[in-house]
């Protein structure tokens, strides 16, 4: 009898994950319904449970950001949009909403214009989602050797020339998709952005008690993290200033929302 129950339990094990999937779907729908009914705090609680279950996606953070926006928690909103764009740089709606909110909050913010190379890179990086890039890479991984072999074995000049060009193009795309996929892999696992959580955070020239206040950074600004020490973050502001802030004043994209 005891043996039987163990066997039944073992057989049921795979079902739990299915149940978990159902539960996640339920939570998500619950969040959407609450959002539509303008119960934004309920929506926030529902959406926030999903990453804990391992459901991490750009859409989820985008929805969570929208709910935070409705609750006027702008630092959290920006954090969510940044997270959504980190997971999927080609998320158009997240891009739109982030830009919209930044315009609303900091209409007169001056930022350092990106370099030409950065612009091309950003264009490529935000062209497709990382998933698409990875799929592209995997396809090319199969296609590129095949094309090269066809080129080597084809007899007619016409064919050879055609496959030569195909191979070069495939190689080019193969390298780009490899670069972008690797970069996406790296940056998603090592996010280097943070959103200022508190009102008017002093930026210091040194971590700790020494040093002076360089500048004050306002709430909901997104900063680049250059370095982390125990309780301090070395950050670069949108206007190019570099300094240190207490890490508790910022929402680090590498951590969860508090």
């Amino acid at each position: 009898m005891k043996k039987l129950s163990i066997i039944i339990f073992a057989l049921c094990l795979p079902l739990f994950s299915v149940a978990e999937d159902d539960y996640a779907e339920l939570l998500f729908e619950q969040g959407v319904t609450a959002y539509n009914a303008e119960n934004y705090d309920v929506a926030i609680t529902s959406f926030r449970k999903l990453p804990e279950l391992g459901y991490i996606s750009a859409d989820l953070y985008y929805n969570l950001g929208n709910a935070y926006y409705r609750e006027a928690e702008f630092a959290n909103t920006i954090w969510c949009y940044e997270k959504a764009l980190l997971l999927n740089p080609s998320h158009d709606d997240a891009k739109f909403n982030l830009e919209f909110l930044n315009n609303e909050l900091f209409s007169d913010r001056d930022s350092v214009p990106p370099s030409f190379f950065n612009e091309i890179w950003n264009f490529l990086y935000t062209l497709f989602s990382p998933t698409t890039w990875i799929i592209l890479f995997l396809i090319l991984q199969l296609v590129l050797p095949a094309l090269i072999l066809i080129f080597f074995f084809s007899a007619s000049r016409k064919k050879r020339r055609m496959f030569f060009y195909f191979s070069v193009l495939a190689l080019f795309l193969y390298l780009i998709s490899l670069c972008i996929s690797s970069w996406a892999y790296y940056s998603i696992n090592n996010p280097s952005k943070a959103v200022i959580k508190n009102l008017s955070v002093p930026v210091r020239s040194e971590p700790g008690q020494g040093g002076t206040n360089i500048v004050v950074v306002e709430q909901a600004n997104t900063v680049q993290i250059l370095d982390r020490s125990e309780n301090w973050l070395k950050i670069e502001l949108p206007d190019g200033n570099v300094g240190w802030i207490l890490s508790e004043y910022a929402l680090d994209l590498s951590r969860d929302l508090p």
């Binding site: 985008y62 929805n63 929208n66 709606d93 909403n97």
Partner: peptide, 8 residues
């Protein structure tokens, strides 16, 4: 802002 994504 734009509307949320309803697809799970």
């Amino acid at each position: 802002i734009r509307y949320i994504h309803e697809k799970s």
